[in-house]
Design a protein around this nucleic acid. Structure first.
Lengths: 245, 245
DNA sequence: GAGTGAAACATGTATATACATGCCATGTCA
DNA sequence: TGACATGGCATGTATATACATGTTTCACTC
C-alpha cells in the first residue's frame, strides 16, 4: 500500500508530493506534527534515507520545520515572494498597530470588459473576465488603488468572494496553483482618474506594482497604484544562506 | 591530506566550502569543469554520497551546473536578486542591441561628506566615506542618476576603480562578501537637482531603488533614480520550483 | 517532592553498495 | 564517408547500516 503516485518521477519526489498533498488537502494542518521518518518508512515502503531527503528538501523550500529530537511540523505558509508580502498593504496596515483602521471600497465590477482590454492583458479566448476596481483606505485616507482582471474560470468561487474583507493577492495566492508570476514595478504620474480616487494631486508620483500570474493560461492581472508620499514603499531584505565567493 | 577545514561543521559543509573556496580564489574559473565526484572522493577522502550531497546543494543554490553523464561546471555568477539584475541599467542597455550607446558621467566624488549625511546612512565611525554622483546615459539621453556612499575601507581598491566603465552594483557584488542586503523601492517626484541632471521636468516621477549592504558594518548605500517615462521598470519573473499546495 | 539519570525516540550525518540514466568518443560495418 | 552499436564515464537515485546529537519522558533515588 504505497500511497505514492505511480508516475515516472523519482521516489523522493513522490514522497515530497505525498507530503505536499497532505498539507494541501488540509489533512495535516499548519503547525501540525508529521509522522516520524520511521513511520513514513513503514507506511510508504521506502528507505529512511529517501524519506529524509524528501523532508530535508521540503524544509529548505520552506514547507516544513524540523527540530532534531522533536519532530517535523508543517510550516506556516510562506509568501510567494517578498514583493507580494510587502505589497499587501492590508496586512501592512493591520500589522502596524492598533490605532490604524483599514478600509476598502469596491468601486465597480464588470464581467465583460472591452475587447481591447482583454487582448491587452493577454486573456485570449477566456472571457468572461472579471474586472474590478478597489480602493484601500487607512484611517479614511485612500492609500492604494487596485485594478484587477481575473479569469474566474481558473479561480474557484472567485465571484463569491467578498473582497472588502480579504486581500486579493492573499486570496489568489492561496487558491491558485501558480506556475508563473511576473512582477513589474514602475513609477508613473497619477492620471486624472487615479488622482481622484486616491485623493492626490494629479501628476504626483504613483508606485505601480503590476502582477500577472499564469497556470498555463493567464489567471489574473493585478495592478496596484500606491500614492507614495514617502509613506509607502516596497522592500526586501536579503540574507544569503551561503557564503558568497 | 584532507584539504578540508577542521571546524566542527558537518563534512558535506566542508566539501561545499572547499568548492566555494576554489571558485572564489579563481582556481576554478567560470564554466570550468570540476573534478568528477570520484576524483573528489579520492582527493578529499570522503564518501561519494557526501561529495554528491555537497555538489547537489551547491547546484540548487546556483553555484554549479551539472549535466548527467558529462560533468560539473562552475555556474556563471548569479545576480544577488532579480532586482539587482534588472536594475543594472548599463547591462540593460548593452543587452538591448547594437544601436544603443551607454555613457556615464562622474559628477563629483568627495571623501568626506557632511557628518549629517554620514549618520543618516548609518556609517557610524567609519569615515572617510566616499560619496559620488554618476549619471548614466543612453544615446546621449540621461536615464539614471546614481548616488553612492561607499565605505572604502571595506571595498578593496574601490578608490582606484574607474566607474565610468564598470557598473557599480556589479563591482560591489563581485568584490564584497555581503551578509545582508536591503532594497527599498519607492516613487518620488524629481527634485530640482535630479530633474536637472536627468534632463526631465521637475516633479515628474522617478523610480528610486535604494540599496544598502552590510558585512557587519555598513559597506555601501546606493540610490538610483530612474526617470520612468514608461521606458524603464524593474521586474522579476518567478517560476516556482515546486508545486504550491 | 525534587533532582538525577537512563531509556526511548526524534532528526542529522556518513559510509558502502548497487543500479539507473545520460552523454560522448571510439570503433565497426555498410 | 556515414550510420549505428558499444563501452566508458559521469551524474542520479535507492537502500541498508551505523553512529551522532538533541529532546522528552519516566522511573529511580535522595
Amino acid at each position: 500500500m504505497s500511497a505514492l503516485s505511480d508516475s515516472a518521477s523519482p521516489l523522493y519526489e513522490k514522497v515530497k508530493d505525498f507530503v505536499l498533498a497532505n498539507i494541501g488537502s488540509g489533512k495535516w494542518a499548519q503547525n501540525a506534527r508529521l509522522p516520524s521518518e520511521n513511520d513514513l518508512v513503514n507506511s510508504l515502503g521506502v528507505s529512511r534515507m529517501t524519506v529524509h531527503r524528501a523532508l530535508r528538501e521540503l524544509t529548505s523550500e520552506g514547507h516544513l520545520r524540523r527540530v532534531q529530537g522533536v519532530g517535523t511540523f508543517v510550516a506556516p505558509p510562506k509568501a510567494q515572494s517578498t514583493l507580494i508580502e510587502v505589497s499587501n498593504i492590508i496586512n501592512e496596515i493591520r500589522d502596524r498597530g492598533g490605532k490604524h483602521r483599514a478600509g476598502v471600497i469596491l468601486l465597480e465590477r464588470v464581467e465583460h470588459p472591452a475587447a481591447a482590454i482583454v487582448s491587452a492583458f493577454e486573456f485570449d479566448r477566456v472571457k468572461p473576465v472579471d474586472h474590478s476596481l478597489v480602493v484601500h483606505f487607512e484611517n479614511d485616507v485612500p492609500v492604494q488603488l487596485e485594478e484587477r482582471y481575473v479569469n474566474p474560470a481558473l479561480v474557484p468561487h472567485y465571484l463569491d468572494q467578498d473582497f472588502t474583507s480579504i486581500a486579493t493577492l492573499e486570496y489568489l495566492q492561496r487558491c491558485t496553483p501558480l506556475t508563473e508570476v511576473e512582477h513589474l514595478i514602475s513609477a508613473v504620474p497619477a492620471g486624472a482618474e487615479q488622482a481622484r480616487l486616491l485623493q492626490m494631486p494629479e501628476r504626483d508620483s504613483c508606485l505601480v506594482l503590476h502582477r500577472k500570474t499564469w497556470t498555463g493560461a493567464t489567471v489574473a492581472t493585478v495592478n496596484t497604484f500606491t500614492h507614495v508620499g514617502s509613506r509607502y514603499s516596497l522592500g526586501s531584505r536579503y540574507r544569503p544562506t551561503h557564503k558568497p565567493a
